[in-house]
Structures are given as C-alpha cells and as structure tokens.
Design a protein around this nucleic acid. Structure first.
Lengths: 343, 343
DNA sequence: GTCGCTGGATGAAACGTTTTAGGCGCTATA
DNA sequence: TATAGCGCCTAAAACGTTTCATCCAGCGAC
C-alpha cells in the first residue's frame, strides 16, 4: 500500500541497504542466497523503485522527449513510431509532447523537460531562425536533434528531408501537366517546412515556368479545417483568375481542399488539380487519390533517435551530423491529367 | 553550463537556501528587495529547478500519463488532445505512451510510470478481464481512469462510449438496407471494444435479422494494413458466399477494406457496403465517404482527465464514477443504398 | 604463522529540493 | 515596561537512491 522503500526491504531481508541496491543494479556481485532473500522481500513488500531518487542521484533521467507540431498529424505519428522503436531498444522511455504549432507551448514544454533533466530532446521547432530555447538546452548539455528540419547550426544534429527539392518536384509536375495559374497553400510561414516547400516551388517556377504565376494563400495552420477554409477563399475568386492547380504544404490541407472543392461540385483534377505533401496513409485512400510528395517518415524518426542516443552516450567526442533524405513525388489521380494550354 | 543548484543561488544572492525556495514557491512571503536579488541570481546563474529532487521530496510527480492502443490512430490522437487541454489547464504535464496493442509493452509502460510515481494514469487497456497491472497501481494509490472502456470495476473511474449500442446501430442500419450476408471485421477480440461492438451487432441480428447471417473475420490489429488483408480474404470467397456488407471494428480497417476492394474493381456500396467505427476525420474524405459510428473523441479525453484530476485531488472522499456516452451513426455513401432482397 | 587477496557485505556521504521549527528585530497593545 | 504578534529569514531534517571507501572472514601461498 504505502510505497515501501529500499530501507524497509533491507530490514526485512536482514541485510544492509547497500546490498539491496546491489541486488537491483549489480545482481552478480551479491551471493545467491542473499540475493534470493532480498528478492523475496521485494516481492513481499511490493517494493517499486523510486525513480525520482534514482535520477536525483544519477543527475540525469533515462527519458527522451519528442516535441512535435501536431500529434494528430499522421506524419508526426509515424515519426514518433520510428523514434519509439529506437528509444525503447535502448531501454529508455520516449515521451511525446505536442506544441500544437504554438511557440509558447513549445517553450513551456522545453522548460519542463529541462527541469526533468531529460537525456535528450527531438524537436520540430515551431519557428525557424534563432532559437534561444533550444540554445539553452544545448548550453546545459542536453543533446537536441532537429527533426524534419535542416540547419546550418553547428550546435546540434539534424535530420531532414529536402523540402526545397520537394517543392520543386511538385511544381515541376504541375507545370509539366500544363498548369499556368497555380496556388501554394500553407502556413504559417514561420514554420520552416512551409517556407522551404514554397521556396522550392518558386524556384521551379522561375526556371521552367514561362508566363506561369504562383499565387500564395497563407493558412493559419496545417490542418484539414484550414485547408477547407483556404479552398473557400479560392472558390470565391472569379473563374478567370482562379488557379487550375494547388500545391499544398501538407496532406491535411490538401485533403481539406479536396473535400471543400468536391462538395461545391468541382471536379478534381479536371477543374482543379491538387498535390499534397507527406504522402500520409490516408492520401492514397482519399475521395480522389491524392498526389503527394513522399517522405520517409519512420526512417526520419529512427535516424533522429539514433543520432540523439549517440550524442547522449559519447557527448565528448560526438560530431554533429546533418542527415538529409530525398523526397519523392507520388503522382495519383488528383493531378494526373494534362491540361490543354490556352494561349 | 553545469547546472547550478539552489544552494549556489543562495550563496550568490547572500541569502539562505530556504529563502530561495520560498522565492520559487511562495514569492509573497519574502521581502521585495530580497526577492529581487534572488531572482537576479537565478537568471544570472541560469538556474533551473531540479524536478527529481522536488518530486523526491514531494513524493509525487505532477505528470499524468495516458496509455493508448495506437498513437497513429486518429481516434486516439483526438482523445489525447482532449485530455491534454484539461491536464495543461491544471498545470500538469501529459505524457503519451503507446502500447501498440501489446500487453507486454503496456505492462512495461505501467511499471515505468509507477517508478516515476505519476499522479495518475489514463489507460485504454489492451485486454479486458482481470488486470493485475492496473490493480497494482490502484493499490499503490495511483488513480487510474479507464478510457473508452466501461467497467464494472469499483476500483476506478471509467469513461466510455456504449460500444454495444454502436454495434447495434451499425447492424440495424445494414439490415435495414436489405443486407443478409454481413461480415464483422476486427480483432484481436481480447480488445474489449472489438468484442463489444461485435456483441452489439450480434444482438441486433438476433432481434431483427430474420434469416441473415453474420460472418466474423478476425484481424490481428486495428490498422489499415490489417483491413486490406481482411478484404483479400473476403474477396477470395466464392461470390455466392461473399458478404454484401461489412461492419468494421474501426475506421482504419474500414479504409483498408475500401482501398483493397475498389482496387480490385468492386463498387462500394453496390457490390459491398461498408460501415466503419469512430468517424475519424478521414472517414468523410475517403474515396467513397465512409459511414461510421461517431464517438465524442475529445470529450472522452477531457472527461477522463477531469475524473482523474478530481480523484488525484480528493483521494479520500472520491467516489468512482462511470461515464457512458452515446454513439451516433453517421450514414454516408459507403453504405447508403437499398439492396433488393433476393428470396 | 604470516601475508595478501578476494568475494561479499556494510555504513555513510551525496544528490537538490521542500518544509518545519525557530530566531530575531520591530511595532502595537496593555 | 513587559508581551504578544508579525514579517522576514535561517538552519536542519527529510525524501530514497547510488556509490565509494571500508571491513571482515576465509583461504591459498610462502
């Protein structure tokens, strides 16, 4: 009932407190008979180790945290699963924190994690640019790995997918299919991924998009609901100005657009082509199967966790690394139709 | 760099260690001038409270855990978000653990959480029936709330949606649309929800299903992939035995079935009607919009968290409660077609 | 018989907080 | 002038581990 402590176990087994600790942590250094007695006392009293005390003494915990932009986004849940595998193999525990694309919540989480002396943090930051919160952690000696986010930072590892390339692939595809009025939907632009995918798209337009235009519609978040709202705005445009294709910063937005647009009786891709990003599991199963830029999600999580564990273990000699994966465009029906170009 | 502790802060500010603690915890009891000096010392040294020590002293942590069957399932991510709201308002921290429908992992998580002396646990258990792991926690005085899981247990609160009713609604709907060969897809049956939704379906069949039959196909998990596999098996049946409708234990399975079945050229709902469960956000956006049994997901999470906090606060006088919400059938195209009954 | 070694156990220090019992100087009250 | 009360602060104990320096008994080697 009341949590028994190691001292009571010791008394009960007729040994010293240090011996019980040895049974727990270095069982081979204690004589079999004694060990047996101690183990019996443990089960009899229902003793459970007090992790706070252990950590206090150790100065460090065995948990690793991952701070994601949105737990409900299938992209991140897959990243989490990847990280989980690696972390659990290493005997540590992964705690998942949700920033909800909100800097303040992100900071709050990082502070709490710092108080808990976590062994390391995987994080997809809400804003790019200077990140005092992260620097604090790093100064403190807590390893940080940026997830889905490249970085020139010399102070941490990062694992990313080339978002500029991803944006470029999507855009080239749409141009290739004959689209000339194209919209980019995503936001907020403070999120690096949003900005970089746009940059890629813009670059592709510069290079191959003779007389094509890219309209940008900023959303407040990367969710299905935000996608629906963005689609409404799009549909409110006079037909002649309305884009014939949209490239969305992620699949949730794309699915939102798809829902809204088909609900209003437009055909996809004939009236509006759509390309998403992430290739989440639901993209291929959508009303109109969604073209999307695929990222190796679980691999991203696994790699990030590996880098983190490595840094946590060999803090001194550790060399920061920046891993970049290549995205891949998956063309499905939502954009797979040639458009006759009107001149 | 090296984590400064409260003692150094005290020395730096020229006060005693207890005073620093007071500044941190009861700022109003210390004179403004002193408080100021201490706060300056804190920022100057970059002091961050050590949570392990705090907890050790307090005997309890301020974190609450939620153990879900599958972090990647949108149903659970919504439950998590609901719980998160409430927990954060209360100034606590929510950690999300994933059992992955695996009892061993569930146990491992519960053990770790017990070691951490969490303030409480929200859990959707992998198996129903007796749960020694949970009983252990409760014996220890750690409040447990069962989520999405009713219970006759007098030893904990629970928050659930009436799964038997949900199964019944789905089944009555399919019978009403004229189906006579119906399959139930879901598994493993050790998961209470799976068993109860089936029970509801079976009951409805008993009552209204003159000469109709319910075939059960057990899946190994509640995922899209499992749904696809189940659909393959279904399609392997000779046409005359093949069900004309399936009721799936959750939407992920239903989406898997939908994908596989349409890929093989069958029409939904004409050749096969589908009803899912949970009404996740992606259900309505599917290739064929999916009929589904809707559950109040966020509300479930919020309510569970509220009950937990209440129990954690008023442990002594707390009366366990069992909240049950009503599900609601949402009919969409995947099942909305009358079938001419052949006699 | 002495010495050194070894396997096994012990006792105490240390980790960084929070809390409690007091102490000190001052003011208001009797 | 004593006393009580108050505001502010201090010193020390306690939380439950882990670890490290010791200690002890037994034993083989010389």
């Amino acid at each position: 009932m009341a949590a028994a402590n190691i001292k009571e176990v010791a008394r009960h087994a007729g040994v010293s407190l240090g011996t019980v600790s040895n049974v727990l942590n270095r069982p081979d250094t204690v004589a079999p008979a004694t060990r047996q007695r101690v183990l019996e006392a443990i089960t009899e009293l229902g003793y459970v180790r007090n992790d706070s005390a252990r950590q206090l003494r150790a100065g460090q915990s065995r948990t690793i945290a991952i701070v994601v932009l949105d737990v409900a986004n299938p992209f991140f849940t897959d990243v989490v699963r990847g990280a989980e595998q690696v972390v659990e193999e290493a005997g540590a525990m992964l705690v998942v924190c949700n920033s909800g694309e909100d800097s303040a919540r992100e900071r709050r989480h990082l502070e709490l994690l710092e108080e808990q002396r976590v062994r390391g943090v995987l994080v997809t930051p809400v804003r790019h640019g200077s990140q005092p919160d992260l620097d604090r952690l790093i100064d403190r000696g807590i390893p940080v790995v940026l997830v889905d986010r490249g970085s020139g930072r010399a102070s941490s590892c990062s694992v990313a997918v080339d978002d500029v390339l991803g944006g470029r692939l999507a855009m080239e595809h749409l141009l290739d299919r004959g689209h000339r009025r194209i919209a980019y939907l995503g936001g907020p632009f403070a999120i690096a991924q949003v900005a970089e995918r746009h940059a890629g798209a813009a670059a592709a337009l510069d290079e191959h998009g003779d007389n094509a235009e890219l309209r940008v519609a900023t959303t407040t978040s990367l969710t299905v609901a935000a996608g629906r709202r963005a689609a409404e705005d799009l549909l409110a445009l006079p037909a002649r100005q309305r884009p014939t294709a949209v490239f969305c910063a992620n699949d949730l937005i794309a699915l939102g657009v798809l829902q809204e647009v088909t609900a209003r009786g437009m055909r996809v891709p004939a009236d509006l082509a759509i390309v998403g990003y992430d290739d989440i599991e639901f993209a291929g199963a959508a009303a109109v199967p969604l073209s999307s830029v695929r990222q190796p999600r679980e691999l991203l999580g696994r790699t990030a966790a590996q880098l983190l564990l490595e840094e946590a273990e060999f803090g001194g000699t550790h060399q920061h690394r920046h891993v970049v994966f290549q995205p891949e465009l998956v063309v499905r029906r939502s954009s797979d139709q040639q458009r006759r170009t009107r001149r």
